[in-house]
Design a protein around this nucleic acid. Structure first.
Lengths: 312, 312
DNA sequence: CTGAAAGCGCTTACAG
DNA sequence: CTGAAAGCGCTTACAG
């Protein structure tokens, strides 16, 4: 060891992995996207890209997905992962109770795991990769404030089981915080939860709210902002300033049509790529990993959207 | 070859590079940053990061830099690179004439090269990595327009030898284009060139312009927007909306103090990283490379600036 | 427990 | 020109 120090010896990783011939298996547990255009396809693209690059090193992947509206599916799939005994796990811990159970069992098996998109604090994760949701809400607040001369604001959660959607709550808090600390705030804020858009009644509910409360700005706390685009287009409502999240195809359409002014984004493909990379660096290369890795809070408009392509 | 096709044989790159023991040398020719906080340190950080990762593969680098105000230094350094006969070159082709001469000689030696930051079209480059400057100017125009209720706008180039600064011209053109196509544009636009800030007379010139022409918005076409921050602070000018480029330390200060509203950024570290990666993928891995790689046009405000750190 | 030998999948100098 | 041998820097099963 002394001589190693003196000579500053660095092992040759190429030779090492070539000789060892060992293979490594990672598992992912992420929400199943409702469609091929859904948000959760994006982290997955990044995951696959990094896995492909690392296939030379014998890195393999097995994917599991759960239904965002069904916490039991999370539990069922996590059991399957435990049976598989992978060398590392990437998960979106959407359901806190089920996730904690899973994490405990991973701990017993000494399997490292990385959180993506949302976080449970101090749960023994190797790393968290995702946005600071409060701050991202604050950015949304500032932007909407800058472009809204007058009128009131509606915050909309298109989500079921809000108890489990901590990052949406945090975004809302950050958003409200902006207006709370602002001097002479002329805007009044309201919040609505729309758990289900199957039944088109929600449209009437929102339209009524817009009229009654002089709503001139809308903030949708997740990627379902295209719902508002559709509403504004079909009911021919103009002069509404709208901010939402994530550059998915349906949102891009309404951004281009000027029904949505800003989308807040978080480089989901890069997140998936980095999640696998963290596992690789820790499990295969035995390096130290930084625990928190807040993604940037990206601001997308009609004009820069086409340049916001990852991995060109 | 038939059997290779049938078996879908993929050579093992690890074994290949381990056995071949060949080393590869890349050269970079970039502007020398005026200080440790200058913009051009950033691409260099990315370059070094990728070189460090690839040192296992026997990739080495030799760096050359030129003075942005002196086209001769570009020519001198490019000659030194030609003598070195590297396996690939990354350059910022700031001086078109000198760059074309250099490129021709690189072509004769069959040395591939990548452009970074600014581009010469169809010059035989392996790839270009940088922003679409026209579009980035358009984004600046839209943002300033959104937050500026009334008053006129001043575009400032802090640059010498404007003939060689094609990307600044393009940014200006994009910016003007936004207001040209806008309906009922209430803002009049002016442009000023400040070749030198050593002599503080430029401050009087700008101040006078601001007063005489009712300037309420300023767009600085490069990273020298901190000059305007200083001017506004020292002369106590409020209510000016300011947009500039690049998140360097001096600009961050005035963003935080609310003298600058937006910075347009282009992930310079990522650009450096990608430039080396393109050379590596082409020269060492013999893969096909995409020719254009426009960087995203990132919008930075006081609130998301702290999260805009690359390579965390 | 220690240490030498075989082998990972290639490249390259060299014998024929 | 062809083809077998040596070697790249490690790991790992195995003999002692």
């Amino acid at each position: 060891m002394e001589i190693i120090g003196e000579l500053n010896y660095q092992p040759n990783i190429l030779a090492s992995t070539l000789a060892s011939k060992k293979s490594v298996l990672f598992a992912t547990l992420l929400p199943e996207p409702p469609s091929a255009e859904g948000y959760w396809n994006k982290p997955f693209i990044g995951i696959q890209k990094r896995i492909a690059e690392l296939s030379q090193y014998g890195v393999q992947i097995q994917t599991f997905s759960f239904n965002q509206a069904d916490s039991k599916s999370f539990a069922t799939e996590s059991k399957r992962i435990l049976e598989l005994q992978p060398d590392g796990v990437v998960m979106a811990p959407f359901f806190k109770k089920e996730a904690m159970q899973f994490i405990e069992e991973l701990g017993e098996l000494n399997i490292p795991f990385v959180f993506i998109d949302s976080e449970i604090k101090d749960a023994g994760q190797l790393s968290y990769i995702g946005q600071d949701s409060f701050q991202s809400g604050l950015v949304s607040g500032k932007l909407l404030d800058m472009i809204l001369p007058a009128g009131n604001i509606l915050v909309i959660h298109f989500a079921k089981e809000m108890d489990n959607q901590n990052h949406l709550i945090q975004r809302e808090k950050g958003f409200y915080h902006w207006f709370a600390k602002r001097e002479n705030n002329p805007h009044t804020l309201f919040t609505i939860e729309i758990p289900d858009t199957e039944d088109p009644k929600w449209m009437d509910q929102i339209s009524k709210k817009i009229e009654e409360d002089n709503i001139k700005g809308i903030f949708v706390t997740n990627s379902r902002v295209f719902n508002i685009g559709r509403l504004l287009e079909t009911r021919n409502i103009k002069d509404m300033m709208v901010i939402g999240h994530d550059l998915i195809k349906e949102n891009l359409e309404y951004l281009k049509k000027d029904f949505v002014q800003f989308l807040i984004c978080q480089r989901p493909e890069e997140q998936g790529y980095n999640a696998i990379n963290k596992l690789f660096r820790s499990v295969v290369q035995k390096r130290k990993i930084e625990e928190e890795n807040y993604t940037s809070i990206d601001i997308i408009t009609k004009e820069n959207a086409d340049y916001y392509k990852e991995f060109k």
